[in-house]
Amino acid sequence: MGSREHSMGADDATGSPDRHHSEVTLRVNGKPHTLIVDHRSVLLDVLRERLDLVGAKKGCDHGQCGACTVLVDGRRVNGCLLPAVALDGCDITTVEGLAAGAAGATGEELHPLQRAFVERDAFQCGYCTPGQICSAVGAIAEAEAGHPSHVTDPEAPSGQPVPLGPDEIRERLSGNLCRCGAYPNIVRAVEDVIR
C-alpha cells in the first residue's frame, strides 16, 4: 500500500522556501531544528531521514500500526500521517528523548517504561517497541488527565484520573500492533510502571 511515496521529499536538506517548500522549526527532544521541508514530508520521514532519529518506525505508513508513534506537545500521535509543515513551532518527543539526561549526556538513565520493557521482555524483534513505549507514555498521561476509554465504566466520574487495569491498558494501546505478539508482556510492563 502506498509504498511508492516513501521518503518523498524528505531528502532535500538544502533549498529555500517556495510554493512547495516551507521553513519550519521543530523542537525535537528539547533541541530546536529549523529546516526547509517539502510540504509532502510527514513528521516520521523528517525525523528518520533529516534528523537521523530512527527510533520511530515506519510500519504501515497509513495510521494503522502505531510503529511511528511520537509525542507532539506531549500527546501521542502517528508520525506517518502528519505533514511536518503543519507542526511549525511544536515540541516533539521521540523514544530517543525519553531517557533522563538523553541527547548524549553522560549518566543517561532509561525512562521507567523503557526499563520495564527490558525487565518484562516486552518485545521480540523490537520493531514496534519505540511506538509502544511512546504510546504508553501518552496513554498514562491521558488516564491521569481523566480521559476515559472505550472500556471505562460510563458511570466513572468525569474529570477524575482513570485507574489503568489490564483491560484499560489493552484498549488504550490497541493502536499499536505487535506482529511478534508480545502483548501479554507489554501489558505487564505498563502495569509495572503505573503501580
Partner: peptide, 19 residues
Amino acid sequence: YPALSQAVLAGASGQLRNA
C-alpha cells in the same frame, strides 16, 4: 451526551483521536 463520548471512543485509536 454520553452516547457521543462513547461513539468517539469506539473509533480509531488513541493516537488518531488525538489528531
